Simulated assay, not measured.
Amino acid sequence: MIQIKGVTKKYGNFKALDDINLSLEEGTVFGFVGANGAGKSTMFLILATLLQPTSGELFINGISVRKNPTEIRKMIGYMPDFFGVYDQLKAEEYLDFYAASYGISDSERQKIIPQLLELVNLTHKRYEYVDLLSRGMKQRLCLARSLIHDPKVLILDEPASGLDPRARVEMRDILKSLKKMGKTILISSHILPELAEMCDEIGVIDNGKIIAHGSVSEIQTQLRGEKVITVNMMKAIEQQTIHFFEENPFIMNIEKLEMNNGISFSFKGTDDDQVDLLKNAMANDIPILSFTEHVTNLEDVFMEITKGASEDEA
């Protein structure tokens, strides 16, 4: 569905994007995460045909973004990070204006607009003036605007930016509904946990480069390279128990817990290696009460990724 091949964007000697390569299947929800200024918006502007890359090619459904911008605009819905609204229009009129701009007939507009307002939970605000809507409502209205021509691809730049917790949940639920409809969705954010629940894949971008790509769990594994596991016993730990864990080639940094009935350690093996470890421990009559893998804090992962990339640049 989407192919990005060697896309670079330069401003003088500065590279806003540096050799971006990415391939996404139809129906994928992909999240670009990175700090402000990392290159997320630049990438989205190029995909939305609003900015030309210095080099590289992009294709949506086999059509070149650079060579056929008019065709591409029929296929995408773009929601920028800073959106504009016409304050003197009511919500319904606002959508009607954009639908007419896409050449949608009056009879079709009368069907589509109520459906879109229902999708973004704004049916009760259809006759409200846009300038009287809250920020969250305005963003949902702009999302409805990007859907007015039923695009195959949605490009959403920071759709949850500046929203309160309740509005974030509402936006997330709407995006989940769009995912079920089979839309291919690209979302950007500078907050990794914000994307974790709704995305099939995530790309971490820093200084114009994609430095990690995969599911959240894959990114954690490839960058952290280890898991932290806590094992609690039914009785005080004996030296032979410590020796059992020390002999495992995937275990390091063993620490006794304060209660003296447990240990924690770093584990660099696979999930299968972890299963084998537990099986062998039980076979050796080690009285395990609990065996817990700790979930890595996503913010810590993001900080570690970008720190590593910065050190490589230096």
Rank of each mutant, 00 (worst) to 15 (best):
S188D: 09
K152A: 15
D106H: 12
G136E: 01
M233E: 06
N13A: 15
E57C: 02
G208M: 01
S177N: 13
K268M: 13
D96M: 12
E226G: 02
K111S: 05
A314G: 13
V85I: 15
S189F: 05
V231Y: 09
D276H: 10
T221R: 14
L163R: 02
M198A: 10
R66Q: 15
E170T: 05
P69Q: 03
E128I: 10
I174M: 11
S188W: 07
K74N: 09
E247I: 01
Q115I: 11
R73D: 01
L143I: 06
F267I: 06
R224M: 06
T49N: 13
K125C: 10
V169D: 11
M259K: 10
D81L: 06
T28C: 04
V85H: 13
E158R: 08
N36V: 04
V228Q: 04
I46K: 09
K15I: 05
I211G: 09
L133G: 00
R145D: 04
L278G: 04
D96L: 12
M43D: 10
L116T: 01
S55L: 05
S107T: 11
K179Y: 13
D106T: 15
I155A: 13
L95T: 11
Y102P: 03
E299V: 06
K209W: 12
L154I: 15
H124D: 15
Y11P: 02
E258H: 07
E93P: 09
Q88M: 11
S290P: 07
I20G: 00
N36R: 06
S264G: 10
A48M: 10
V29S: 03
Y86W: 09
A167C: 03
E71C: 00
K268G: 11
N232L: 13
I187K: 04
R224D: 01
L47Y: 08
R66S: 10
K111E: 12
R172I: 08
S107I: 12
L58W: 00
M1E: 14
L133V: 04
D81Y: 07
K179R: 15
I174C: 14
K307E: 14
A16E: 03
E246R: 04
K5T: 12
L89Q: 13
K111F: 06
I219K: 06
A48I: 10
T49P: 09
L116A: 02
P114Q: 12
I113P: 11
L58H: 02
M181N: 14
S189T: 07
K40F: 15
T184R: 13
K74C: 07
Q239P: 03
K15A: 12
A100W: 07
D273N: 02
E108A: 08
V130P: 01
P114A: 13
F267S: 05
I112Q: 06
P249T: 00
S41L: 14
I237P: 03
K138P: 00
I4W: 14
